[in-house]
Structure formats: C-alpha cells, structure tokens
C-alpha cells in the first residue's frame, strides 16, 4: 500500500493498491477487521460520511464469515481484501462450502469444533438470527453488494464497493 493518501484531485491516477489479510474465525478479530477497513477506506479517499457504512458493512460480512465457519467447525482463515482502483472494493471470503446447516447439524458442528456454547440454545438461535440479519443489514446498507458462492471448492464471497472521488463512478451501481 502506498504510504501517502491518494491524490484524486486530478492528473494521473495512482496505481491500484491492495490490502489483504486473513484471520482465525474468532469473534475477537472481527473488530480488528472492521477498523482496518475504515482506516484503509479513509486512506483511499472514501468520503468521510461513508466510513461508518464501510466499517459496519465489513464488520457484518466478517461476522457472517465467522458464523459460517463456526457452524461447520472450520478453523480455516477468513480472507479479507481491500482494493483501491476506480472504486474502493472490499471482499470477504469464507471457506464454508455449504449453506448454513440446519439446527440439528449445527449443534453437531459446534461440538466438533469444541465450542462450549453448543448447549447454549439461546446463543445458537441468536447466531442463526445474526447470520440472517447480516445479509439484511448488508442489503440495506450497501448499494453495490454481490454475494457469490458457495462453489464446489470454496465458500462464499461478499463483494462490496464504494465510490472514490474523481473516479468518474460516483453513483453506486
């Protein structure tokens, strides 16, 4: 990533930049991911008024990914990528190949993962609710939102983008 704020006041556009990282699917790291998102977006020049939206949306997508991994007892890393080009693009990829398991399967998957909350019915129910709400929040919050997958060899990817000043693509899709 470049060390200075992108100059979007005109002239030659800077080279596209990428920030990529991955984290263990644990709740404790979701905050770090959303704070990095807001910071990278600010650095890229995303309008100040949209930074809360970026933080919330990336947090929701990461929460969803962690819940999907937790469901399946997966310890694979959740992958996050931000790219700065014509727009600021955030991609959050999980590795949960199947759609969310049914209630009975979920307890089993949590037990395989050694999750002590497997017996906590309320927490599981709220997790189910939360995954559904993440998509509702994302759909309401982000105009340019695409969720792909799961594919045969991978999980799902939440792709979102926001306009950058001077990019000629101010309007969201």
């Amino acid at each position: 990533m470049n060390g200075s704020r992108h100059d979007r006041s005109g002239g030659r556009r800077p080279e596209p930049a990428t920030v990529r990282f991955a984290f263990t699917p644990a709740a404790a790291y979701v905050r770090a991911a959303r704070l990095v998102a807001a910071d990278v977006a600010a650095h890229a020049g995303v309008a100040t008024g949209l930074l809360d939206e970026v933080r919330q949306a990336v947090g929701e997508a990461c929460t969803r990914a962690v819940l999907r991994h937790r469901d399946r007892g997966l310890r694979d890393l959740v992958r996050v990528e931000f790219s700065i080009g014509d727009r600021f693009v955030a991609k959050i990829t999980d590795n949960a190949q199947d759609l969310r398991a049914r209630s009975g399967d979920r307890v089993g998957a949590a037990a395989v993962g050694g999750d002590a909350r497997a017996s906590d019915h309320d927490a599981l129910e709220e997790d189910t609710l939360s995954e559904e709400i993440t998509l509702i929040v994302l759909g309401g919050l982000v105009e340019d939102l695409v969720v792909t997958g799961p594919s045969a060899d991978g999980g799902t990817t939440v792709s979102m983008s926001w306009p950058l000043p001077g990019s000629g693509s101010q309007a969201d899709h």
Partner: peptide, 17 residues
C-alpha cells in the same frame, strides 16, 4: 458507539425471553 447484527440478535432474543 457501535452495534452490529449480533447485537440486534441479542435484542430480539431478549425480547422473546
């Protein structure tokens, strides 16, 4: 300062209980 969907899930669960 911040609330995400997990927080909303807790609110719904609390209301139900």
């Amino acid at each position: 300062e911040f609330c995400d969907s997990t927080g909303l899930g807790v609110l719904i669960g609390a209301r139900r209980r």
